[in-house]
C-alpha cells in the first residue's frame, strides 16, 4: 500500500483543500503527494505557528485546512494552539511525524519525543498514534472526527509506520 497516497486520498475525500507544510524527512513522500494534487492548495510555511495562522484564516474563508509538520513543532505552536485554534474553536488535523520514537537514528529527536504525548495530553488534544501501516485505515475517521468536533487533532506517525529509514 502507498500510505502517502492513501493519506492524501482521505484528505481529498474529506474536502480538505488547503494544506500547509514544514518538511520532515519522514514526511517527504506525503508532501510530494500533497503538492501533486490539483484538489489541494499547498502552501509551505516557514514556521508551524505561522502555518496554523494560515489554516485558521483558510477555515474562516470557507476551506477545510490541515497542517503537516514534525513533532518538534509542538514546541513552537502551543501558544497558537491554545489561543487561536482552541480558543476560537477551529478544526485542524495535524499530521505529525513522530520523530525520536522506535527506529529513530538521531538522538536529539528523542528529546522532544519524550514530551510530545504529554504536551498534547496537557492541551487536551485528541491524539492518535500510527505505528503499523494498517493504522492508516483510521485516518478517514479521524478527519471526520476533527471537523465534527472543531478541534485540533494530532495524528502522530512514527518511523515504523513510514517503513523505517533505510540505511543511514
Amino acid at each position: 500500500m502507498d500510505i502517502s497516497k492513501k493519506i492524501v486520498d482521505d484528505f481529498v475525500a474529506n474536502d480538505v483543500s488547503f494544506i500547509t507544510t514544514v518538511p520532515c524527512k519522514q514526511l517527504a513522500g506525503v508532501i510530494d503527494e500533497v503538492e501533486a494534487r490539483e484538489e489541494i492548495f499547498h502552501i509551505p510555511s516557514n514556521k508551524e505557528d505561522e502555518g496554523m495562522g494560515l489554516c485558521a484564516g483558510a477555515f474562516m474563508g470557507g476551506k477545510r485546512p490541515a497542517i503537516i509538520m514534525q513533532n518538534t513543532a509542538i514546541g513552537v505552536t502551543i501558544n497558537t494552539l491554545a489561543t487561536l485554534t482552541q480558543f476560537y474553536r477551529m478544526p485542524l488535523p495535524m499530521l505529525i511525524s513522530y520523530r525520536g520514537e522506535l527506529r529513530e537514528p538521531v538522538a536529539c529527536q528523542v528529546e522532544m519525543a519524550v514530551h510530545t504525548k504529554a504536551l498534547l495530553n496537557q492541551l487536551n488534544i485528541p491524539t492518535y498514534h500510527f505505528h503499523w501501516q494498517k493504522d492508516v485505515e483510521e485516518f478517514d475517521n479521524i478527519l471526520k472526527y476533527t471537523f465534527m468536533s472543531n478541534k485540533p487533532v494530532a495524528i502522530l506517525t512514527d518511523a515504523n509506520f513510514w517503513g523505517g529509514y533505510g540505511d543511514q
Binding site: 505561522e50 495562522g53 494560515l54 477555515f59 474563508g61 501558544n79 489561543t83 487561536l84 480558543f87
Partner: peptide, 22 residues
C-alpha cells in the same frame, strides 16, 4: 472584523489564509 485576542504575530497569516480561501 476578526479581533485577535491572543497569538501575537499571526494577523498577517490569518488574514492571508482568509484571502487565499475566498
Amino acid at each position: 472584523n476578526f479581533y485577535m485576542l491572543g497569538t501575537m504575530g499571526l494577523s498577517s497569516s490569518i488574514g492571508f489564509g482568509v484571502a487565499l480561501a475566498q
